[in-house]
Simulated scan of single mutants.
Amino acid sequence: MSIELRQVSKKFGEYCALNSVDLTIADGEFVAVLGPSGCGKTTLLRLLAGFEQPTTGEIYMDQVQVAKKGFAIPPEKRKIGMVFQAFALWPHMNVMEHIRFPIRHHKETPGHIRKNEKDHISKILSMVGLSKFEKRMPHELSGGQKQRVALARAIAAEPALLLMDEPLSSLDAMLRMEMRREIQTLHRQTGTSVVYVTHDQGEALAMADRIVVMKNGSIEQVGSPEEIYRTPHTEFVAKFVSRANLAHGKWKDDVFVPNGCEDTLQWQGKHVASYFKSSGMFPVRPDQIQLAPAHKPGIQGEVVNVQFQGKDFHYHIQSHDGQWEIYSPLSFRLKEKVTLNLIETQ
C-alpha cells in the first residue's frame, strides 16, 4: 500500500500535535517514525489507522482519499494490521483463536484466506515460530511468544499496511534484538508496507528502509538510515540519532577549521549540511574521532571518564570546546591528556 500525507495537521484543543506534515511512503516500504515522547509520532499513527481525523490536510492510501477535515474511512475498511506496545492479547483466547479472529471478522480479508482458513493459520504459525503453541493461552506464554502472537494476529488477514506502535519497548534487551530479526523477516516474507513508531534510534537504524525523524509535531528529516546517521540536517537530528559531538569553528567553502586550531587542522566537510556551515559547527559521531597521545596536531583534551565496552573504549573528554563523547577501538587505555582529530574516511 502506498501512502501520502498532504499538509496534515492535528490539534487537540489549543495543542498542536502535528503541524503541516507532508510524507510519502512507497508500497512495501518499511518506514520508522522516530522521535522523543510528545513529538507527534503516535498521533501520526492514529491518523493512518483511522482512529483520528486530521484538523487540516488530506491522507491518501493507494491514491484513494481516506481522511480529511471532518471525514475518515474507519479502521476496519482500511486493510491495516496493528501491533501495540502492550500486546493487547485476549485472555480467553488461545494462540490459534487470536490468529483466526481477524480472518473471520475483518471485512477486507481476501476470499482465498477465508476458504483455506486452517491452512493459512498453520502457515502463519510456522512463519512466527509458534506451530507447537496453537493451544496455549496467553498466560502460558513468555513475553517474546506473546509478541509473536500479536504479530501473527496483525498479519493474518494479509493487511496492505502494518502499523506498529513501540512494539518492543516492554521487552528485555536480548529479546528486543531477537524480535527485530523476526519483524524484518516478516516484512520480507509478506511485502506489507510497515510504519513503525519508536523512540529507540537503534531499532530505527537497524530495521527501516527510511527513517522519519520528528520533533514538536513536525518532520525534521527523512532519509535512509545511512543518510540520517552520516549527514544529519539539523542539530536535533545529529544529537538525537546516535548522538554527535558538535565542534565549533569557521567554514571556508567546504573546509572547516576548529576553534583554536587555525594553524594545525583543516577538516573536509562536503557532506555537512548547510545548517551547520551557517552555524559554524561540524557534527562528529563518536566513532569518527581518532585519539592520540597529547601534543600531537589536533584538539587538546583531558580524559574525564572511560568505560571498557569489549570491542572498544567509550571516552568522555573535556576540551576548550566542551565535552566530547568518543568511541575508540584502541587496544590500550589512554590516560589523562589526549589529542582529538577527525578520521578522514567519509
Rank of each mutant, 00 (worst) to 15 (best):
G223V: 13
V66Q: 12
S193W: 07
P329Q: 06
M174L: 14
K69M: 04
G191I: 10
M1N: 10
V241A: 04
S131W: 04
V194G: 01
A156M: 05
I113M: 10
S274A: 13
P36W: 06
Q53M: 14
H139M: 11
S131L: 10
G111D: 14
K337T: 04
A173K: 07
Y60W: 11
L151T: 01
E203W: 06
G57F: 01
M174H: 12
R210P: 01
N341D: 08
G81W: 05
G35F: 11
P293K: 03
G298S: 07
Q63N: 14
K132T: 13
V212D: 01
V128D: 07
A244T: 15
G202F: 12
Y60F: 15
V241N: 04
N216P: 00
I343Q: 09
Q65I: 13
K215Y: 10
H120P: 00
C16P: 00
Q65R: 15
F282L: 12
R243W: 08
F308N: 05
Q85V: 13
G269C: 06
N305G: 00
S170F: 03
S224H: 06
P54G: 07
L162R: 07
G144S: 06
I326V: 15
M137R: 11
P297M: 04
L246N: 12
K123S: 15
S331L: 13
Q323N: 08
V257E: 03
D119W: 04
W90D: 08
P329A: 08
V149L: 06
Q290V: 03
K337R: 14
A244E: 15
Y275R: 09
K337H: 11
K277N: 02
L168A: 09
S278M: 08
A160N: 14
